[in-house]
């Protein structure tokens, strides 16, 4: 069996090198949908992080009992249960935010990031490693969401997390908080990340 990454490696990989949104292109639906403000973006990242952590821990605890053709059923059952719990907690204690996020919280069930991490990491490694992996990936996801949300909210409403930042003479670019703005911002940021990544690997190559 090939050497699986260690706990610290799993944690660090999740944040930038294997960022779930910019590098793995997973979980794109919430990335576009809830990033019209910093507050929804942070809440969504926290919700996904919670579900990811819980699912990874449970799957890692029972990893020796999992048989090949039933493991997807087990993953799905675990993830759906935790998403239901998180959804109810949000509706009980953060009701206005729960209404803003709407149907995108239950859509965490089909968010490819969680099933992918269960498959790749939690079903094969110990609880501590799986938890570190979950935290790393969740941080990476949060970073990606906030980068897009900050730009969209700043340009589209002149605010950051609901606090007015731009001078009142700023004409709000309303398109940024509408669907086209989501696509365009994400596309341009993706190109930026690709460009930075290519420049760094070019430099690394030249340095040898």
């Amino acid at each position: 069996m090939a050497n699986l990454p260690t706990t610290t490696e799993r944690f660090i990989q999740g944040i930038l090198p294997e960022n779930p949104v910019y590098r793995q292109l997973l979980g794109l639906c919430p990335t576009l949908a809830v990033t019209n403000g910093l507050q929804p973006a942070l809440t969504m990242a926290a919700a996904v992080g919670l579900v990811l952590l819980s699912a990874n821990i449970i799957v890692s605890l029972i990893r020796n009992l999992l048989k090949p053709h039933l493991r997807i059923v087990v993953f799905t059952l675990t993830i759906a249960t935790f998403v239901t719990i998180v959804d109810r907690l949000l509706a009980a204690y953060m009701y206005p935010m729960s209404k803003t996020l709407g149907p995108y919280i239950p859509l965490i069930i089909v968010n490819c990031i969680i099933i992918c991490r269960c498959e790749v990491c939690a079903s094969k490694q110990s609880v501590v490693t799986a938890a570190a992996d979950a935290v790393g990936q969740a941080l990476g996801f949060g970073l990606a969401l906030c980068s897009i949300a900050a730009i969209r909210e700043l340009l589209g409403a002149g605010m950051l997390a609901g606090i007015p930042v731009m001078p009142s003479a700023w004409p709000a670019w309303v398109i940024m908080v509408l669907p086209p703005g989501a696509f365009l911002t994400f596309g341009l940021l993706m190109a930026l990340v690709n460009w930075v990544g290519a420049a760094r690997s070019n430099n690394a190559g030249k340095g040898d």
Partner: peptide, 23 residues
């Protein structure tokens, strides 16, 4: 297409223009 835009980036930008059209 410029190198950084190949793949997902240009698709997203085209998607944004399509979304504008559908608006």
């Amino acid at each position: 297409i410029p190198e950084p835009f190949k793949g997902a980036a240009i698709t997203l930008i085209v998607g944004g223009i399509l979304a504008m059209a559908f608006m």
